[in-house]
Write a protein that binds this DNA or RNA. Sequence first.
DNA 1: TCTATTTAAGAGTAATTTGTCTTAAATATA
DNA 2: TATATTTAAGACAAATTACTCTTAAATAGA
Lengths: 150, 150
Amino acid sequence: MLLSKSCVYGLRATLLLASNQNGNYTSIKELSEKLDISFHFLTKILQQLTAVDLMESLKGPKGGVRLSKSGEEITLLDIVIAIDGEDLLTECALGLPGCGIEKPCPLHDMWASTRDEIREMLESTSLTQMANKGKKMNLRITADGKFTWE
Amino acid sequence: MLLSKSCVYGLRATLLLASNQNGNYTSIKELSEKLDISFHFLTKILQQLTAVDLMESLKGPKGGVRLSKSGEEITLLDIVIAIDGEDLLTECALGLPGCGIEKPCPLHDMWASTRDEIREMLESTSLTQMANKGKKMNLRITADGKFTWE
DNA sequence: TCTATTTAAGAGTAATTTGTCTTAAATATA
DNA sequence: TATATTTAAGACAAATTACTCTTAAATAGA
Ligand code: FES
Ligand code: FES
């Protein structure tokens, strides 16, 4: 799997947040229901995003989470790195320690270029871009497809 | 992680087999020692390759494993699919079921093209090609780099 | 101030992946 | 045929990932 489940859940949730960013807090309960993700699990994941200040949270009634800046300023890469770390983008395809430095593995050239392309793709795409695309083309971010971008 | 550890171990072992393919059987013991992989674990992994006839095995003294055809005819993709399955090359980046069909997810276009590129890269590269490259450029297929392509 | 609501934190469970160990089956060779 | 060697198979254990549940802390609003 390219991305962990946690990461995928984090992406889905932040896409949703970016899709109707209005300054208000959205409760994790609401996110978890719309996205059909376990509430407690999603809470844990989103905590990782608030920990690195990609999100802000507020406890209590009217509380919830919101992006800490405009969704245009947050890239998919920001979310991926916050949750899965840099491994995907730095590790050797053969799992050898210290990709690239000293002695590369036989797959290095091929993999390094594909890997850079993945990074480029994630880095050049903002949450808002993806959310807008999803909204405009009515794309899917849940398994059943019942989700609607209001 | 792009590839599972099992898959990576399978690739390393088959690269080694391709690097000195002479019709003889190589014992898994020898492979596991050269590659610094647990013998029993590697045995299990290679069984998956013999199960799909990418390798042949022989029990007893002088026994071991060998590629069932020329390493030029076996691609990296063959090994990856035999061990990790098609998931990496067919699954949705957001983990949604049925990538592409019906309603794609917002990442679909981007991911599908990157994914095809990964497939292309694995499919167009044979074990022998990689092994020759490794031999010629003295590249690394173990963590410590002590391994030598005799 | 009191209460209901909501995130934070952490313990605990389940599933999957990774790795170990033991025994059985096959086979080359003496 | 007897023995040593090697893969096959399967039970088992450890580590990681995925998920659940309970309790604490914060806060808006009555
Ligand atoms: S060293 Fe293996 S991919 Fe870089
Ligand atoms: S539907 Fe998500 S990548 Fe194809």
